[in-house]
Design a protein around this nucleic acid. Structure first.
Lengths: 261, 261
DNA sequence: GGATGCGTTCCACTGACCGGAACACCGCTC
DNA sequence: GAGCGGTGTTCCGGTCAGTGGAACGCATCC
């Protein structure tokens, strides 16, 4: 029966999912920020796959340099993944245009400068300039719920309502006690952001850290990214820094449109 | 027969190679710096795989967000690849220690600052600071034959002889007319580099571009990376910039050792 | 010694994957 | 408007790549 076939196929797809690609991603997904090197056993546990299977897959991945094995036999993500990642267009094309402008902003404000894009209901940091001594909880490739951060809110504010709706429906988890967690508060804040053309983030994503962000538009005025500067909460004067960020974001928007992006 | 089975298996492995993973990588490998968006047909040609196969694999990859499809139906590398790539330890751990030092070097010299590691017989740029108006042919994630660039030579100079041998055996392709292409010349240059503790690159990797590089050592004095500054050939004074790069590289080496890397 | 952890190899079974065939849809040209 | 070369898509039977239990060797630890 075709319908039953489809159903079983769909079942397998939705829960568990046993294709080769899934297994590969389960293995690669076992690594995260804090766990960069893993033995076979731990890899199995995290991937939820039998030992033999992981052993074989990991072996193939090493052969392809997607994984490497160190002297102690531990697996780690390999250089080739980094190389492929650097080719991703949203990162590469955006960065090439944005970096000079971000550097100017960095020099002018002496703050940490962030460029982020919306991916689904989260924000992903595409480029960050300026090392910090204190931990501000942001890193290139990092993913944070859009409502809980300055760049995220400013992108949401200029996104289609369907996007905002998706974020609301997925819930508003709190990263700090000051994160916006209610629908009404978020909607009100987004309205305010649209009216002043920038967003503020006072310890909403990370305690002790404040942030000012402005929207970056691309081809046909569609929101493309968010530009922000971040620093310890005491050092951030929105009245002073706001115009700097807004100007830089505006310049970037122009540059993107000139480049046809 | 077991032996024949093994042979055919090995044959398939060595030439062509028809495992799922290989097909996936053939598809992902179809994208490069200049070709960021591809239709199905072109994807097939580049991957060397039949239409149906690519269609199915690409579909699965899109589902997993390793690829994305734009409005016109073209495929492009997806954000998830960037996210995974940013987790690669050689990049992440090295960068986190190196970036503050690289920023200081950047401010002091106002040149483009490069951090690169050796991967096999090539050099891969791990981190780059300082946008340039002119094209210097380097980008994060970029891969260049080790003998043909400043950072590459300085890493080779402090690598085990087996590594140098591997590079020699793989040949010394020329990137510009000034690239070192003979074994004797390279060996002599490496000796000179070891004696002065830094390497020079006068238009060897890119015409009009010069470069000064110094070695970065990690745990137990093993060579880990190369640090370099780059600029238009006229603006580069080795006598002035050399010490700056060497000092920064030395500071970085210390920092790495302190971090246990 | 035996118990528990690791990583590795072997190999028979099977269903996930393959890809040819045939499809629908352009925008051409004649 | 028929014919053509180019896209992208769906269908489906055959088969071999991929699976994973079992059994291995080797460390620790008690």
């Amino acid at each position: 029966m075709r319908s039953t076939d489809r159903n079983t196929a769909r079942d397998a797809r939705e829960l568990g999912n046993r294709t080769v690609l899934h297994r590969i991603l389960a293995v690669l997904g076992a690594f995260d920020t804090s766990t960069t090197r893993l033995g076979l056993a731990e890899l199995c546990r995290r991937a939820g796959l039998p030992k033999t299977t992981v052993h074989r897959i990991a072996g193939e991945l090493v052969e392809e340099r997607l994984l490497v094995r160190d002297e102690q036999g531990l697996y780690a993500l390999g250089m080739r993944l980094f190389e492929i990642g650097e080719l991703v267009p949203v990162h590469r094309t955006l960065s090439s245009v944005a970096l000079p402008i971000m550097e100017d902003l960095r020099e002018a404000t002496r703050k940490r400068v962030h460029l982020a894009v919306l991916d689904g209901i989260d924000v992903v940091y595409v480029e960050i300039l300026g090392a910090t001594s204190i931990d501000v909880g942001s890193r290139p490739g990092g993913r944070i719920p859009a409502h809980a951060t300055g760049v995220g809110k400013v992108i949401l504010a200029y996104s289609p309502t369907a996007t905002i709706q998706a974020r609301l429906e997925a819930g508003l988890p709190a990263l700090t006690p000051r994160t916006i967690t209610t629908k009404d508060a978020l909607v009100a804040d987004l309205r305010k952001i649209r009216s002043i053309g920038m967003s503020l983030d006072l310890e909403e994503s990370h305690l002790g850290v404040s942030c000012v962000a402005a929207p970056v538009f691309g081809f046909n005025k569609r929101i493309r990214a968010g530009l922000s500067i971040t620093g310890p909460i005491g050092s951030m004067d929105p009245g002073l820094l706001g115009p700097a960020v807004r100007t830089a974001a505006f310049t970037l928007s122009r540059a993107l449109r000139d480049a046809g992006l």
